[in-house]
Design a protein around this nucleic acid. Sequence first.
DNA 1: TGGCTTATTGTTTATTAAACAATAAGCTGT
DNA 2: ACAGCTTATTGTTTAATAAACAATAAGCCA
Lengths: 236, 236
Amino acid sequence: MNSNPLIPKELKHYFTLGLSIDCVVFGFDGEKLKVLLIERGDSPFKGYWALPGDLLAPEKDLNSSVNDVLNNLTGLNDLFFEQVETFGEVDRHPFGRVLTTSYYTLVKISDYELNPASFACEAKWFNMEDISELAFDHNKILNTCFDKLQTSIRIKPIGFELLPPKFTLTELQLLYEAILDVKLDTRNFRKKILSMEFLINTGDLQANVSHRPAKLFEFDEMRYNSIKEKGFSFEI
Amino acid sequence: MNSNPLIPKELKHYFTLGLSIDCVVFGFDGEKLKVLLIERGDSPFKGYWALPGDLLAPEKDLNSSVNDVLNNLTGLNDLFFEQVETFGEVDRHPFGRVLTTSYYTLVKISDYELNPASFACEAKWFNMEDISELAFDHNKILNTCFDKLQTSIRIKPIGFELLPPKFTLTELQLLYEAILDVKLDTRNFRKKILSMEFLINTGDLQANVSHRPAKLFEFDEMRYNSIKEKGFSFEI
DNA sequence: TGGCTTATTGTTTATTAAACAATAAGCTGT
DNA sequence: ACAGCTTATTGTTTAATAAACAATAAGCCA
């Protein structure tokens, strides 16, 4: 049962920590940026809204447990997470010493169904501005992850995971505006994003709209990935 | 002695983790970028070179323990660290389950004396290119921190901590070249760095050099800090 | 004073960002 | 068919920034 069989006696005291994983799942609904929260059905902080998170099992890798934790609580699955920061104030957890490593990801809300389970008695998307006091130090964690998201989107072309396979440039612009919380100039935005050449004009048009239909784009995955690795500067 | 008095029985199993802190101390000697390593005098990895690092005591905050860990092993003191990433592969430590949170900092080598202590039987500055196989997964950790350093220096004006209070523009350029591992155009570098207006020309000149003495600059701390917070783009 | 060493500076050209509004295309209802 | 509505699309001018490039300045020393 002890996961640390070789620990010298004098070090036993150091092997009493708990570590949790907290997931910040940002969602886009075509208009606003949201965050997925759960209502906790167990102590501590029973009844509070919180980031989906749970203790790391000693026999599991850290980074590869994130999806399990999220899946257990909300039903969401198979997401790509970015690790952000580990929080370790002594008194951040009322039960004892629990540090937590935070991660964020981005999803398209309509692609997923929420199925709260385990100690999550509810799971819900919240507008960023509607979030009040969360359990633990989760407000701080959320803010840190949001800052990181805003920085990242200027350096890497994240965002495509959040759109349908074929999308319009207007949809893409709305996504950037939602994440950065600014209004962008349409002409300049389009010039810039097209100049990066990871968008492909499919030739298809939007259907069933009562106005001029927009061109549908998809993205060039090869080129997108190579840019994503190198990074770029998206000052817009 | 148990630091987690309120843990429900069924969760005891989760509170058996160890967490260490690993410090990547980059140093600048006026010419090359170096890293501070210790030779481990204790098992595991006795005799190996390693990043200075130690277990986190359950009664101490994570971020504020970094300086203690480093000070214990090397005598260095009072540095500003940036947290980078937490590594948590199950088998990364031979004694059992130990995750590690990594941090980096930057120092001017000549400002510090090395005093290895505790299980560090040696402490030494290594050129980045002279580093071979380190203990644990420390090569991976070092690489991750180095990537982060290179990214950060393009976004924030780090670097001044590494220079004497009054320094020449050539010294500053050498620092950037050491960290980024590139050659920069002197005229463009000076224009760019001066246009940011956090450098103050002290009016003093370099002394005891057998060539045209350079002007000595210091930096405008107020302005430097405000830029550091907002971030900037140092594509150079 | 000539020679050595490093410091300092400016111009031209290319690229990128910013600001700004008129026209196009499909749909709807008449 | 067309007038009116809605959103999509596009280009130009100006300003700012980046890139490329080499001659002169200033102190020291012999």
